[in-house]
Design a protein around this nucleic acid. Sequence first.
DNA 1: TTTTATATCACGGAAAACCGTGAGTAACGA
DNA 2: TCGTTACTCACGGTTTTCCGTGATATAAAA
Lengths: 217, 217
Amino acid sequence: MGKLKKIKVHIADDHKVLIDGINAVLKTEEQIEVVGCSLNGEQVLQWYKENNSDVLILDINMPKLDGIAVLKEFQKQDNRPSIVILSSYDDVKLVKEVMKIGAKGFLAKKCASEQIVEAIKTVYSGENYFSKSIQSKIVSSFSDSNGNAEKNYFNLLTDREKEILTLIAKEFNTREIAESLFISINTVETHRKNLIKKLQVKNVVGLALFAHKNKMV
Amino acid sequence: MGKLKKIKVHIADDHKVLIDGINAVLKTEEQIEVVGCSLNGEQVLQWYKENNSDVLILDINMPKLDGIAVLKEFQKQDNRPSIVILSSYDDVKLVKEVMKIGAKGFLAKKCASEQIVEAIKTVYSGENYFSKSIQSKIVSSFSDSNGNAEKNYFNLLTDREKEILTLIAKEFNTREIAESLFISINTVETHRKNLIKKLQVKNVVGLALFAHKNKMV
DNA sequence: TTTTATATCACGGAAAACCGTGAGTAACGA
DNA sequence: TCGTTACTCACGGTTTTCCGTGATATAAAA
């Protein structure tokens, strides 16, 4: 073993240019071999029914079945590849979420391609891997709670507030929310007010966008 | 001439992985040489102050100065590269717009990397280039207006409507939009009304979510 | 030339959102 | 027991959104 066995990698991303690019980068790596590619989540699952790889580079935003759904599907299975999540943006919460459901690594697309190679080798060896940009974000997310804060906003919300926020993001108005939750309009308005304060947005538009960004809808 | 002169290419995109990928792909092309890269619009303009290239691969969504702004800047200049726009999504209206302000080609990121090579060679020879996916969209955009329709809501919007929708999704209220566009509040309200009708949503929340889903923010 | 599409503006009224302030209850932990 | 947090509700007033209806100007398309 050693020279003989290459790390088998599958790449899944709906941007074909990116797949080709990563492919080209990995072609220069002797220890790595790209054995398959997919353009959406369904293709990924289909491919793994009859094939296998050591590592899977998985984009979050994909048509038909997104990265999260694919990840959850793999979680049910025994013989699964080490999965490195590829995301357009650094988001500590997203990292937490995907690591909890079985991802082994996290790469932002803005990072350098050498980090892909690093990531593949690291997760193949059994360790977790985070791209440098997200590492620093994770670190700084521990030192908030006071001064800087950043965007731990989501965790500030109570369950009830999340519930109401979800309804707002579904285009429900205050009266409709009140009726569907069997509470007073005044109460809903209070919650809305608190949400706007907590999330530091200007109006319902800000609330809706926050909900959407945090995948509450 | 012929073998000696390579096509000089500059790549601008805020996703470093993508730059590295394209770089790797183009490295295998004898006729093409990548002479520079940028991660945002300002860098592009800075680079072209002291350097030059035959072709510029230009991403639309970039921090600091977006692709459109860069394109407009180049339009004022005499000795400019042939510009190929790189976009995350196919949008016939966007294609029209960028071609009008001097772009020579349009590539969606989901297209295959061979098309980048094709695009570079084509625009270098003086012709325009469109990726296949957008070609078919352009063609079908001529034959709609009747039957199928689908949910091409986005293309239903006029430029002004898109502009206003973007501002709504940025939490601007009607007065603020009116002031920033130097038009009457009444006009903005009319536009908002038309947007709600066209997109078949209930309120600004629906508008904001639509804008977000279509990556207008 | 007529029609259509786009962008502009106006008015009035109803509905909803926004904002501050205050207050009662229940649950939990220090 | 006391303090905190979450959830509930109320009131009054301002601002904004929502909705219909109608009008003008312009430029492109039929």
